[in-house]
Design a protein around this nucleic acid. Structure first.
Length: 935
RNA sequence: GCCCAGGUGGCGAAAUUGGUAGACGCACCACCUUGAGGUGGUGGCGCUGGAAACGGCGUGCUGGUUCGAAUCCAGUCUUGGGCACCA
């Protein structure tokens, strides 16, 4: 029955364009956004819709509350998996992507979401990536003006170079020169300098190269030294790469966090990723050399505790300063470091290093400080060199110990000689002019002194690096860039620069992408890299506002109207990728005057992940026997995933298992009671006492683990409304939890019970699924019934507002139970309950609404208001507790004065017994809830 | 190692500001409805002692603050997530 109702209303909404959203309205606007999905070939599993259902409920709720709600959906359809699938099967990514999107859309529609599909965006559509390319060009043609702290068109910078050079204005991302010098530079030199200023720039850099995927990866796409996708090894490689100068936005990205509602956990993650630290850069003279060594430290107060210097092996400086005696050792060490991959370094974490033979001079006490090189110092952070203070830093301490370098103690008793102590509270000793100062106060004194002597400056550093923005792949946005004589220029054709069709996806020469294999492409000297997956997703929320505009990426009127996304729902996995990039793009577009806000998402809610509950069978190694969970430890077994649909709870359907895959056709089972069972040896219907118990583990839901559950089947069996409410009922949206459908019956029962408030099925036709006999009436409700209604209105509103959808479902259940107890079938009550229910179970609400002889759609009904006279208790038995422990009840009216309450309490028999004639110390009357007597 | 979020019945969970812990649902038990099954209904359901009335204990563990703690504080164990030689 529910299936037909749902089909009927889904068709009705579609043909009436019920969810069409207009960019003009008298109503206040509200923008609810989901993180759009990557349309994988596996289709939707029950984990995907969790956030979508939550956002759908909130959107529908806001619509009922009188808002013009934008709630769009689209597809993040460029990316690696489609291309890898293409390599494996030969199907073109455009084809598979189209097919997958169709599957996703039909699956989404079955759940009854209120998307305006006219606003759908697909990042791989030329009409969409035209604007991704356009925005890229804006970034390419802009620089970050550090003085005004915003992005500006690069034309202004060129003008500045021509008139003032780059001395006073200081764009520190490039070198200094005068206006005359600028004019004398040839074009290549000028372009080189400009490239160093552009917000999207091309440069040579150490990148994360993944051989198996044939591409570079951004830092957030590499996990534990292997690729996030596929788990292939990743090595450092020097390559020409496009980058986004996100580091220029580091401070604003941090500052912006205070203006938006993200969870603390999310803010912490972004803050840590940006990794701001402040300290000083200090330059040391080197003995018998004109070279100098500049280090970055957060602890300039420990300058007198420096016992050695460490330089990253990659630094050129090493060749200038190393002593002849150490030359061979240094070269050998550098060769050794180069031979090691990131994975090895991380796995081993051993202490290695090599003395250069050179010494730096401590500027304050003239001490000679040996300069070492070691892989534990990173070339890419700070200056690539550190001053080591073993008494205060654990890594420095271990290094000193390992190489027998004497340790200077500047913190007295705080250092025990056994381990370093990174305290800032110690009083400094052996520290020259800093003696007697507490460390945290000494920092400023030290920095001032260094500045005064021109050997150091205060310095802020960020852990975040510029974002690698090119991929050596096919299935992504082409860069509208041409190369001539090693100079990158904006492509002069009309956007979009369309992705050409290819027959093969194999990499081009010299670690270039497949585009390098296309002669016409190369002939035009076009860039052969493509943009990364996050390019299209960094601005899609803007395109929804004005999706069909062919003149601009998003009309300013539209973006001014819809403004920020009011509510963004998605997983935490994008904390340092997508969410940071979109924030940066928004800021850049804001700086350049294309939009009027500089934070894209006002509020972010992270939905938890629904994990799969995997089942395992245990194959005895080298045999075709499987042993049950209880006795698996007695054998040498190999665990294998088994499809969850073949398992009832933990008990395997052995006959279904042998039919599952051909290679299992003649297996045997050693069951829980150690009996051997061979499928097919017992006839159907014969009692099978043997049980095979599977192992259980919670892991990520994925097709390869056979633990996915398809929402289609649940919608078919129970209906979309049941499915929607059950996903919410499972627990708080923010929380991750393994999927489990054993409670879905309860929610389904609730909806049937709701139905029976309107219609009672006739006895004989209970199974036929017709609507039954009408029982609803138009009688006037009484106080008890109104009380149920208004309490529900209040609770549902509160629950919905605070995204506590699980308790909201409970509230509905209580409401329906109460109405059933009261035998209340009154239209006046029921129709209001239906309105409350609309966001949660739109189909059944709409159906019953129409059956109550209402016209129009319930989606635009007026949201009921609660009356407080029905939501408070008028009189009640109140508990009295004595020293916090409830001992008796007392009858009294609400809103009594303290004095009256005391009198009433003292008359109570139980209290008198406890007091034994003495006066109580205190009588506390708590929030109209209870009374506590302190004795 | 560092940062963050959790830990409550057989299970998913609730408890919005410190105020009668376990709402609601699942599972389970008993009964009613039924020829039977399903559906539907009523009641029970933290542990423990007790025939019962009633009592003791109880929100990972150990302490503390408070008339009163799942909630606040200190320490500790544990699960999940993030970062990881960032000087």
């Amino acid at each position: 029955m529910f299936n037909e109702i749902e089909k009927k209303w889904q068709d009705n909404w579609k043909s009436n364009n019920t969810y069409k959203v207009s960019n003009t309205s008298d109503k206040p606007k509200f923008y609810v956004l989901d993180m759009f999905p990557y349309p994988s070939g596996a289709g939707l599993h029950v984990g995907h819709p969790l956030g979508y259902i939550a956002s759908d409920i909130y959107s529908r709720y806001k619509r009922l509350k009188g808002f013009n709600v934008l709630h769009p959906m689209g597809f993040d359809s460029f990316g690696l998996p489609a291309e890898q699938y293409a390599i494996e099967t030969g199907q073109h990514p455009a084809e598979t992507t189209k097919k997958n999107i169709a599957t996703f859309k039909s699956q989404l529609d079955k759940i009854g979401f209120c998307y305006d599909w006219d606003r759908e965006v697909r990042t791989s559509d030329a009409s969409y990536y035209k604007w991704t390319q356009w925005i890229f060009l804006q970034l390419f043609n802009s620089f970050y003006d550090r003085k005004e702290n915003k992005a500006k068109p690069i034309a202004g910078l060129i003008k500045r170079f021509e008139t003032e050079g780059n001395t006073a204005n200081g764009q520190p991302t490039t070198t200094n020169f005068t206006a005359e010098e600028w004019k004398d530079y040839d074009e290549a030199t000028q372009q080189n300098i400009l490239m160093n200023c552009r917000l999207a720039y091309c440069g040579y850099g150490e990148v994360n190269w993944c051989e198996a995927l044939g591409t570079v990866l951004a830092n957030d796409e590499v996990v534990n030294g292997v690729s996030e996708r596929g788990g292939h090894p990743v090595v450092k490689k020097k390559l020409r790469q496009w980058y986004l100068r996100i580091t220029e936005y580091a401070d604003r990205l941090l500052e912006g966090l205070t203006k938006i509602e993200f969870s603390d956990a999310m803010k912490d993650m972004q803050t840590n990723w940006i990794g701001k630290s402040s300290g000083a850069e200090i330059t040391f003279k080197i003995q018998q050399s004109t070279s100098k060594l500049t280090v970055y430290t957060t602890r300039p107060d420990t300058i007198f505790g420096v016992d050695f210097m460490v330089v990253a092996p990659e630094l050129e400086l090493i060749n200038e300063i190393r002593s002849p005696a150490q030359a061979t050792a240094v070269e050998e060490y550098i060769a050794y470091v180069k031979s090691r991959s990131d994975v090895e370094r991380m796995a081993e974490k051993k202490i290695t290093g090599c003395f250069t033979g050179a010494y730096a001079i401590n500027p304050f006490d003239g001490r000679e400080i040996p300069i070492w090189i070691s892989e534990y110092v990173l070339a890419g952070y700070g200056t690539g060199a550190i001053m080591a203070v073993p008494c205060g830093d654990e890594r420095d301490f271990k290094f000193a110990q390992h190489f027998n370098i004497p340790i200077t103690n500047i913190i007295g008793a705080h250092f025990n000689g056994e381990e370093a102590n990174p305290t800032k509270e110690a009083v400094l000793e052996n520290s020259g002019f800093l003696n007697g100062l507490v460390m945290k106060d000494a920092m400023e004194v030290a920095i001032n002194k260094l500045t005064e002597l021109h050997i150091g400056i205060k310095k802020v550093n960020y852990r975040m690096r510029d974002a690698a923005f090119s991929r050596q792949r096919y299935w992504g946005e082409p860069f509208p860039i041409t190369w001539k004589d090693n100079v990158a220029k904006e492509w002069k054709g009309d956007l979009p620069l369309e992705l050409p069709h290819v027959e093969t996806y194999s990499p081009g020469p010299d670690a270039q992408g497949p585009l390098a294999n296309i002669p016409e492409w190369v002939a035009q000297e076009l860039e052969t890299n493509t943009m990364p997956g996050y390019a299209g997703s960094s601005w899609y929320f803007l395109r929804y506002m004005d999706p069909n505009n062919n003149e601009t990426f998003c009309d300013r009127k539209a973006s001014d109207y819809w403004n920020q996304v009011d509510l963004y729902i998605g997983g935490t996995e994008h904390a340092v990728g997508h969410l940071l990039y979109s924030r940066m793009w928004t800021k850049a577009l804001y700086d350049l005057g294309f939009i009027g806000f500089d934070e894209p998402f006002k509020k972010l809610v992270n939905q938890g992940m629904i994990q799969g509950s995997s089942r395992f069978v245990y194959r005895i190694v080298g045999t075709n026997q499987f042993v049950s969970h209880g006795s698996k430890d007695n054998y040498n077994v190999h665990p294998l995933h088994v499809d969850v649909s073949l398992v009832d709870g933990v008990e395997l359907d052995m006959d279904a298992f042998v039919r599952w895959k051909p290679e299992y056709s003649d297996v045997e089972f050693i069951c829980e009671d150690s009996q051997l069972y061979r499928p097919g040896t017992k006839k159907d219907g014969e009692w099978k006492l043997e049980k095979y118990i599977c192992g259980v583990e919670t892991e990520k839901m994925s097709k390869s683990k056979y633990n996915t559950v398809n929402p289609d089947e649940l919608c078919k069996k129970y209906g979309a409304d049941t499915f929607r409410m059950y996903e919410m009922f499972l627990g708080p949206v923010e929380q991750s939890k393994p999927w489990d459908d054993k409670g879905i019956e309860g929610v389904h029962r609730f909806l049937r019970k709701l139905w029976r408030l309107f219609f009672i099925p006739a006895e004989a036709s209970a199974k036929a699924g017709d609507e039954g006999k009408k029982v609803w009436n138009e009688d006037k409700p009484n106080d008890a019934e109104l009380k149920v209604l208004h309490k529900t209105i209040r609770k549902i509103e509160e629950d919905t507002e605070r995204f506590s959808f699980n308790t909201a479902v409970s509230t509905f259940m209580i409401c329906v139970n109460d109405l059933a107890d009261l035998k209340c079938h009154k239209k006046e009550i029921l129709e209001k309950v239906l309105i409350l229910l609309t966001p949660y179970a739109p189909h059944i609400a709409e159906e019953l609404w129409s059956k109550l002889d209402n016209s129009g759609t319930i989606l635009d009904a007026a949201y009921p208001k609660y009356e407080s006279k029905y939501t408070v208790e008028s009189s009640k038995e109140y508990p009295i507790s004595i020293n916090g422990k409830v001992r008796a009840n007392i009858n009294m009216d609400l809103g009594l004065e303290q004095g009256d309450v005391e009198k009433l309490v003292l008359q109570n028999e139980t209290v008198q017994k406890w007091l034994e004639g003495k006066a109580p110390k205190k009588i506390i009357y708590v929030k109209n809830k209870m009374v506590n007597v302190v004795i």
